[in-house]
Nucleic acid binder design. Structure first.
Length: 288
DNA sequence: TGAATTGTTATCGT
DNA sequence: AACGATAACAATTC
C-alpha cells in the first residue's frame, strides 16, 4: 500500500524512464479508473511531452508540455494496489499481471499501470492548483514546522490517528507511517489531538519526518505482494508486530482498531493519555 | 472461505 | 448546523 515514501521512490525511479519522452498511445482496460474519461484524457495527453515527474501527497504527477508550452498534467494515484511496470523496445517478456492501462512512449518503451484491486486513479488535470487545493501541507517540506503542526492539531478536537491520516490535514501519511510516527512520538492513536503540549507536538513533528525520511532512504516498505522493492518493512517498530515484544521496553505490542484501520501500539510506551471521549456504540437499538 | 486491505465520500449522531 | 465519527464502497488475495 504505497504511502508517501513508496510513491516518492516510484517517482524517483520513473524519472529516467519518463522525462523527455513523448506519449504516442494510451490504452485503458478499466475505463472507470480514468477521469474525466478515456477519450478526453487521450485527446489531452497524446503527442505531449513529459517534462517533469513529481509527487504531491500520494499522487504521481506527470507534467506535460506541447510545443514547449505547459499542457497540464497526468495525476496517478496508486491507492491500495497500483504499481508501475515497464517494457522496452524489442522486449519480448510477457505482460505483467493486472494491467489496467498502458502508455506507449516514443523510444519504444511502454509504461504499464497495474492494479490488482482497480482502486487506483488516472486523471488528466489542466490545473494542478485546483486539483490539490484540498490537500494539507507536505510533511517533508521545510515550511512544515512544529508551529504548522500545532495549528493543525489544535484546530479541532479529533483523535490523533484519524487526523494524521486525513489528507486534508497532512498530506502523504498512510496507515503504516502513522502508526510508526505515533510510536516514536510515544503518543496513543486515540488521544485528543488538541490536548498535546508543545513538547509532544515537537516530538510528533520530529517523528513524522523521521519515519518518512527513513522510509524514503530505504526505498519504502514492502508489506505485501504489491510493492516488492523496499526494505523499510524490516525496520518498522510497531506496524505488523502485534504479539511481538516492543523494541523499546519489551512489552507486547497490541493491535486495535481505530477508524476502521488496523492499528498497532505498545501499551507501555504509548499510554492512553488524554483520550478523546469514546462514543458508545449503542446496540440497544431503540427507534424513536 | 471470508477477513483484511485503503482513501474517499455519503450518511449518521451529537 | 456544524462537525466528528462511522459505514459503505471499489475488487482482490491468500
Amino acid at each position: 500500500m504505497p504511502e508517501l515514501p513508496e510513491v516518492e521512490t516510484i517517482v524517483r525511479k520513473s524519472r529516467e524512464m519518463l522525462i523527455g519522452r513523448r506519449i504516442l498511445r494510451f490504452e485503458s482496460r478499466w475505463p472507470r479508473q480514468v477521469s474525466p474519461n478515456v477519450d478526453t484524457l487521450a485527446a489531452r495527453i497524446l503527442r505531449t511531452n513529459i517534462a517533469a515527474v513529481t509527487r504531491r501527497a500520494k499522487f504521481i504527477v506527470l507534467h506535460l508540455t506541447k510545443n514547449k508550452a505547459q499542457a497540464g498534467a497526468i495525476l496517478i494515484h496508486l491507492r491500495m494496489s497500483g504499481r508501475f511496470a515497464w517494457s522496452h523496445a524489442g522486449d519480448a517478456a510477457p505482460e505483467p499481471a493486472h494491467v489496467r492501462a498502458t502508455f506507449d512512449l516514443d523510444d519504444g518503451s511502454r509504461l504499464y499501470f497495474c492494479d490488482a484491486r482497480k482502486f487506483g486513479r488516472i486523471a488528466y488535470s489542466p490545473d494542478l492548483a485546483v486539483e490539490f487545493a484540498r490537500l494539507g501541507p507536505e510533511p517533508l517540506d521545510p515550511q512544515f514546522t512544529p508551529c504548522e503542526l500545532e495549528k493543525i492539531l489544535g484546530k479541532r478536537h479529533r483523535r490523533l490517528k484519524p487526523l494524521l491520516l486525513d489528507q486534508a490535514a497532512i498530506a502523504g501519511l498512510g496507515n503504516i507511517y502513522t502508526d510508526e510516527a505515533l510510536y516514536h512520538a510515544r503518543l496513543h492513536p486515540l488521544c485528543d489531538a488538541a490536548s498535546l503540549n508543545r513538547q509532544q507536538i515537537a516530538k510528533l513533528h520530529n517523528a513524522i519526518r523521521r519515519v518518512l525520511t527513513e522510509g524514503i532512504a530505504r526505498n519504502g516498505a514492502s508489506i505485501d505482494w504489491v510493492y516488492p522493492e523496499g526494505q523499510m518493512q524490516d525496520y518498522l517498530a510497531v506496524y505488523g508486530r502485534a504479539g511481538k515484544p516492543c523494541k523499546n521496553c519489551g512489552e507486547t505490542v497490541i493491535a486495535l482498531r481505530v477508524a476502521q484501520r488496523g492499528t498497532h501500539v505498545c501499551p507501555q510506551c504509548q499510554p492512553a493519555g488524554k483520550k478523546k471521549r469514546n462514543r458508545r456504540k449503542d446496540a440497544s437499538g431503540k427507534g424513536s
